[in-house]
Structures are given as C-alpha cells and as structure tokens.
Amino acid sequence: MLGIVWIAIMVGSFVYACTTGSVAALGDALFDSASSCVTFILEIGAYMIMWSGFMNVAKTGGLTEKLAKFMSPVITRIFKGVKKGSEELKLICTNLSANMLGLSNAATPLGMSAMKKLSEKSINNTATNNMCMLAVINCASLQIVPSTLIAMRSAHDSVSAASITVPIWITSLITVIFAVLITKLCEGRDIHG
C-alpha cells in the first residue's frame, strides 16, 4: 500500500512538474530533501534515543504494569467477557499502557500477543468484537508525553515545543472515548466457536 502511495506521489509530482515547466526545481528539491532528512534524523534521533533510555528505566521499574493495573477496571467494562485476573486482560492492559508511555517497541509485541489470545474465541478467521475493539483503540493513540513530536518542534526552533501537550491530551481523550463508542455502535453479535 505504502509502495503504491510513494510511487504515485513521486511520478505524479514529476508529471505535473512537466506540465507546468517546473522540472528544474525538482532536482534541487530532491537534493534539499535528502539533506534535510539527514539533519532531521540527527536532531530528532538524538532526542528519541535519550527518551528511549529514560523510558527503559521506567519500564524496568515496572511502570507499565502499574499503569496496566490502574486501567484494568475500565478495560473489563469495554471488553465483554474479558475476566478479572485473566491472561487476556493482562495482555490488553500492558499493551495499552506501553502505548500510553510511548514504548512502541514493547507495545506492538504485547498487542500482537493480546490479539492472538483473543482470537482463540474466533471462528473462520473472523474477528470477534473484542478483537475489533483492541485494534480500534490501538489506532486511536493516547500518549502521555508526545516525545517525538516535542523533539520535532524543537528541531524547528519552536519557542515552546512542549506546549502542544495539553491540547493533545484533550484531543486524544475525546477521540478514544468516541472510538470506543462508535465501535460499540457498529458491532453486531459475535459468532462464537
């Protein structure tokens, strides 16, 4: 999918530039983008590496599990049939809390395990309501410290790079609630095996 989008943007831009006669500008643009990407990765990469170090300290101390425990009462209410103390619940909660902490390297494998565990109740390779819910919630990001974004903004000389944090919290929270509601609204009855 991304491959098609990439080719479409590249070829589309060249073809359009031919019709408007701005082909010459594209050579410069290619070189500028290549060098600005290298500058960009050095700047935000430095920040991402630092943040990854600090977050690993939090992870080793067990912050993910702490947050997971804290959110489990809400999760049992959203995911029907996921019982207190079950393996599914633990996986779902740690997946979501790792995501909230911005530990995407840890969150993805946890989410995949949670999905596998939930799929034990599915038949004919069809997603259950709970599986759909887990995917939708993961698509609606909820991050406590939007570290990459703050890094990007300070790389572009923002006067207050972190000032977007509160607006992001508000927007994310409203979106997650909306996402859960709309998914509940769309789901039909599960065909259980």
Binding site: L118, A127, M131
Partner: peptide, 19 residues
C-alpha cells in the same frame, strides 16, 4: 495490518471503518 496478521484474521469486520 500488523495486529490482525498476528492472529491470522482474514475478516476484520467493522474495524477499519470505525478506526
């Protein structure tokens, strides 16, 4: 794509629409 590939799910029902 990543999540449903993990569980080998073919029919993802209302997921993409809702997301």
């Amino acid at each position: 794509a990543v999540y449903f590939a993990a569980s080998g799910t073919k029919n993802i029902r209302h997921t993409l629409k809702c997301a």
